[in-house]
């Protein structure tokens, strides 16, 4: 990995790490949701610092360039996060639907009693 890429990775990771903390402090994000992103940024920083280790693993796995290995890890992480987010949206969707039904049925009963 080039030194420029390593510096960029570290800076972006630190900024993201801070962003996670800020968002939790602003109550815009749950602690459980932000922790996984913080771990992700820590992994990126570690990979930038210990680039010899990354190069060694990448070589053993047969990557042409170590940077490809870093990108692969980032992509895999994002895919998993995207998939988990989709599952959560589905669950929430269902919960909102149930609430929607609950309100409608309550309203219906109230109207019934009035008549």
């Amino acid at each position: 990995m080039s030194i420029t890429l390593r510096i960029v990775l570290i800076i972006c990771s630190v900024l993201s790490f801070i962003l996670c903390i800020v968002k939790v402090k602003q109550s815009k994000m749950q602690v459980t949701d932000s922790v996984i992103w913080m771990i992700g940024t820590i992994v990126l920083v570690l990979m930038s610092i210990f680039n010899k280790a990354v190069e060694w693993i990448a070589m053993k796995l047969g990557f042409i360039a170590p940077v490809n290995f870093v990108f692969l890890i980032i992509i895999a992480f994002l895919l998993i996060q995207g998939f988990l987010a989709d599952i959560r949206i589905s669950i929430l969707n269902n919960k909102v639907k149930d609430l929607n039904h609950y309100i409608a049925l309550e309203e219906y009963d109230k109207n019934r009693k009035k008549k």
Partner: peptide, 21 residues
């Protein structure tokens, strides 16, 4: 005789609340 949903949620949800009823 009608039920009015507060949020639009599509046909599946509409049939589903009918089933609940």
């Amino acid at each position: 005789n009608y039920i009015s949903l507060p949020v639009n949620y599509g046909l599946t949800s509409a049939i589903n609340i009918g089933m609940k009823y």
